[in-house]
């Protein structure tokens, strides 16, 4: 394993120190923890598929419900990772204009970035607002997916992850917005 390979894999720097920014530090640690759960989920998904294939081909014992479980998990993985992705600035965008402007007027760019972050906060707030009633009703009606008598899994933990992910995403986007506004002010 060569040196240049490791350098690219270092991505842990998005959590600021507690003294530097208590809000950012707490938010960052929480996001990192959620993201770690999501990451473990990807590994679990791989193992689930491998076990299903082996069970089906060699033991006549496939794991029932892999496709539904995988389907639900991939949504959970997204919402577990989103806050960290926002803090790490990893969401896909076409930034050619921003990069152009960066040299000539960094202040404009910072304000623009702050605006985008606010848009992100609004978007996740909307998803949060739209989704929480379904979490309540899923909890109350003990909603599940799967097949009665074969296997069933409650849906509320999955709906809960969406809510949690969105809530943290809103905070993360607001934190980023504050950072951008600060840098806009200091650029003045």
């Amino acid at each position: 394993m060569s040196e240049e390979d490791t350098s690219e894999l270092q991505e842990d720097r998005f959590v600021p120190s507690l003294s530097e920014s208590p809000y950012g530090a707490v938010l960052g640690s929480f996001s990192a923890a959620m993201s770690a759960v999501g990451t473990a989920g990807i590994g679990a998904l791989m193992l689930l598929i491998v076990l299903d294939v082996i069970g089906r081909n060699f033991l006549d014992a496939p794991i029932t419900g892999v496709s539904e479980i995988a389907a639900r998990s991939v949504v959970a993985i997204v919402f577990l990772q989103v806050p960290a992705a926002i803090l790490q600035l990893r969401l896909t965008r076409a930034d050619f204009l921003v990069r152009r402007l960066q040299k000539s007027s960094p202040k404009t760019v910072a304000w623009l970035e702050a605006l985008f972050c606010l848009a992100g906060a609004i978007v996740f707030a909307l998803i949060l607002w739209a989704s929480w009633p379904k979490l309540l009703s899923a909890w109350q009606t003990a909603e599940f997916f799967g097949v009665q008598g074969v296997w069933t899994i409650p849906t509320w933990p999955f709906r809960g992850i969406t809510i949690l992910g969105c809530a943290l995403a809103v905070l993360a986007a607001l934190y980023r917005a504050r950072e951008e506004i600060r840098s806009a002010r200091s650029a003045a």
Partner: peptide, 22 residues
């Protein structure tokens, strides 16, 4: 340690694609 780094990287890349899909 390196396996964990790879997994984390996977998560970060995947989420940007998947969120876009949603």
């Amino acid at each position: 340690h390196k396996l964990w780094q790879v997994m984390k990287q996977t998560g970060v890349i995947s989420v940007s694609i998947l969120l876009l899909l949603v």
